[in-house]
Computed example of a mutant assay.
Amino acid sequence: MTRFNPWHYLRAHHPHLKVDFVDLGRIGCVGRWTHSGIQLDRTCNQRERRVGLTHELCHVESGPMPLDARTAIFEERAIELRTAQLLITVEQLAPALIENDQRIDDNTAEALWVTLPVLKTRLERLTPEEHAYIQQRIASTN
């Protein structure tokens, strides 16, 4: 199974969007979607850039954030989940967990080319079917 590549997705589905690498450290985020395109923090490593770009592409596709703060929180959670689902399929997650002794840590996240918060989001919001699939794969290795 191939990994989701946000750079390929960007070129194929949003070729009009420009990606700039800027200093976002002052505002404490990895990326943001602006009227001129997507900005990613220049100090990010490759995993953070992959996550940041995917996250911002999800924002682009869902449209502007709601003005209501409560609704915006729900929207952001939905974007976080969509990002995690795109970047980590259940077919990739199961072997990564097995290879890393089921640890939920940065080593497992690195094996999946994501950040630890993305890995945690994916695990916290598995569907019952995904959870059963992972448990079955783990049980078959014991």
Score class of each variant (00 low, 15 high):
Leu86Ala: 04
Glu61Val: 01
Ile38Met: 03
Thr71Ser: 15
Ala84Asp: 07
Glu75Met: 06
Leu123Thr: 05
Gly28Ala: 01
His35Trp: 10
Thr83Ala: 09
Glu80Cys: 12
Met1Tyr: 05
Val114Ile: 08
Arg42Glu: 08
Leu10Phe: 12
Asp105Val: 07
Thr34Gly: 07
Thr54Asn: 03
Phe74Asn: 14
Arg32Gln: 04
Ala78Lys: 11
Gln92Asp: 14
Asp20Gly: 03
Ile138Lys: 05
Asn100Tyr: 11
Glu124Leu: 10
Arg103Pro: 00
Asp23Glu: 10
His55Cys: 04
Glu80Tyr: 07
Leu87His: 10
Asp101Ser: 14
Ile38Glu: 00
His8Leu: 15
Ile134Cys: 07
His55Ser: 03
Ala96Pro: 05
Leu24Trp: 01
Pro15Ser: 12
Leu24Lys: 01
Ala109Gly: 04
Thr108Lys: 08
Arg82His: 13
Met65His: 12
Ala12Met: 14
Arg77Ala: 13
Gly31Trp: 00
Arg32Pro: 00
Ala111Ser: 15
Glu130Gly: 01
Trp33Pro: 00
Ala69Val: 15
Ala78Tyr: 04
Arg77Val: 02
Glu130Leu: 03
Glu80Ala: 12
Glu99Arg: 15
Ala132Asp: 14
Tyr9Asp: 14
Tyr133Arg: 09
Ala78Leu: 08
Asn5Met: 07
Met1Leu: 11
Gln39Gly: 01
Arg125Phe: 11
Leu53Gln: 07
Trp33Gln: 10
Gln39Tyr: 02
Trp7Arg: 15
Arg125Cys: 04
Arg32Cys: 02
Asp105Gly: 10
His8Lys: 15
Asp101Tyr: 13
Ala72Gln: 14
Ala111Gln: 12
Thr127Trp: 02
Pro15Lys: 11
Ile134Asp: 04
Thr121Ser: 06
Cys29Ala: 01
Glu61Phe: 02
Leu10Glu: 08
Asn100Val: 10
Ala139Met: 12
Thr89Phe: 09
Arg42Ser: 06
Thr141Pro: 02
Trp33Arg: 14
Asp105Met: 08
Pro64His: 09
Gln39Ser: 02
Glu130Met: 01
Ile73Thr: 14
Pro66Val: 11
Asp20Cys: 07
Arg70Asn: 13
His59Trp: 05
Ile88Met: 07
Asn107Met: 13
Glu61Gln: 08
Asp101Cys: 09
Asn5Ala: 12
Leu81Met: 13
Arg122Trp: 06
Arg77Ile: 04
Glu75His: 15
Arg82Val: 08
Asn107Ile: 13
Gly25Ile: 00
Pro6Tyr: 11
Glu56Asp: 05
Gly25Lys: 03
Val51Trp: 01
Trp33Tyr: 14
Glu75Leu: 07
Arg125Tyr: 11
Gln46Glu: 15
Arg49Ala: 06
Glu124Gly: 11
Leu57Ser: 02
Asn5Arg: 08
Gly25Asp: 00
Gly37Asn: 07
Gly52Ser: 01
Gly52Trp: 00
Asp106Ala: 15
Ala69Phe: 15
Thr43Glu: 05
Glu110Trp: 04
Glu110Arg: 12
His14Pro: 06
Arg47His: 10
Glu48Asp: 05
Leu112His: 06
Thr54Phe: 06
Gly63Gln: 01
Leu126Trp: 00
Val30Phe: 04
His59Ala: 06
Gly28Cys: 02
Leu123Asp: 04
Thr83Cys: 13
Leu87Glu: 08
Val19Arg: 04
Asn5Lys: 09
Arg32Glu: 01
Ser36Arg: 15
Ala96Glu: 06
His55Gln: 08
Thr115Cys: 13
